[in-house]
């Protein structure tokens, strides 16, 4: 019963947060003040949604071993990210989230994603209204990576992870730009958001915006660095983490 509620909560939270990311595409009003209200409300709602899911995953059921392993990976991620933060698409935060989630499961991945972004934000000062959105984005990447099926062949494992990394990198980039696109692009240009316009119309505009602002370059950079890091360190890290998992008797866990 409780695990059913738990799963349901997480599914709803996923849908809700996706809505909060992609609201510019769906909103039907064409009055920009109403859009503003919506965004303000979302900035408030996103952290709450995040907190509920975190509690859902963490409270009561999580063992000290999971917490300690989370601590290790978050710390490692923060240290690595400190060096490459925000530089033209060099994104080092995601490969560990994906690998960690792959070994330890979705719930772990969710906390790992959110925690990594939070700690590196503490260290690099990226604190602001965007933080919960980034945390949720990274958390969802971890959530998804925990669902990748475990393959026995090494190359298949790597292939799965890299395909996922590429998809995740682009989706993350798109979501991050999307939710604040109306503000950053202003109004009245070819690439601006037009409130109330049909989805397809806005989607095309958004794509142009992504290309022109170099968003896609960043996403590509993110996809490449993440894939490359998985390719290079994937087997060694998965082996080490799996060993830790076996030794500590913790496996994949939702």
């Amino acid at each position: 019963m409780n695990s059913l509620i738990s799963k349901l909560s997480i599914a709803i939270a996923g849908v809700a947060s996706l809505l909060m990311f992609s609201w510019p595409l769906f909103i039907t009003s064409n009055i920009s003040t109403e859009a503003t209200t919506a965004q303000t409300v979302f900035i408030l709602l996103m952290p709450l949604t995040l907190v509920i899911v975190l509690i859902e995953f963490a409270t009561g059921d999580i063992s000290s071993k999971h917490l300690a392993l989370l601590g290790v990976l978050i710390a490692l991620n923060a240290v690595i990210r400190l060096l490459g933060a925000g530089t033209a698409g060099i994104e080092t935060a995601f490969f560990l989230v994906i690998l960690g989630a792959y070994v330890f499961g979705s719930g772990f991945g969710f906390i790992l994603g959110a925690g990594s972004i939070f700690v590196s934000a503490l260290l690099t000062g990226g604190i602001g209204p965007w933080l919960p959105f980034q945390m949720m984005g990274a958390a969802l990447i971890g959530l998804g990576a925990g669902l990748i099926p475990h393959a026995t062949k090494k190359w298949l494992v790597k292939l799965n992870l890299i395909v996922y990394a590429v998809i995740a990198s682009f989706t993350y980039g798109a979501l991050m730009t999307l939710w604040n696109w109306p503000y950053l692009a202003g109004t009245g240009t070819q690439i601006s958001y037009v409130a109330g316009a049909p989805i397809i119309d806005n989607l095309t505009r958004f794509l142009k915006y992504e290309i022109i602002t170099g968003g896609l370059v960043w996403d590509t950079g993110r996809a490449i660095t993440t894939s490359l890091l998985i390719l290079l360190t994937g087997s060694a890290l998965i082996a080490t983490l799996s060993r830790a998992a076996t030794r500590a008797g913790v496996g994949r866990k939702l």
Binding site: M1, N2, I5, S6, L8, S9, I12, A13, V15, A16, L19, M20, W23, F26, I27, T28, S29, I31, E34, A35, T37, A38, V41, F42, L45, L48, T49, I52, I55, E56
Partner: peptide, 28 residues
Amino acid sequence: TLTRFTGLAGLVLIAVGAFLLILSPTNQ
């Protein structure tokens, strides 16, 4: 279970609220 339900209810309300804000912003 009650605690869990409260959380779920909160999430559902948030999701519905967000949805409504997007789809029918006329009745804010």
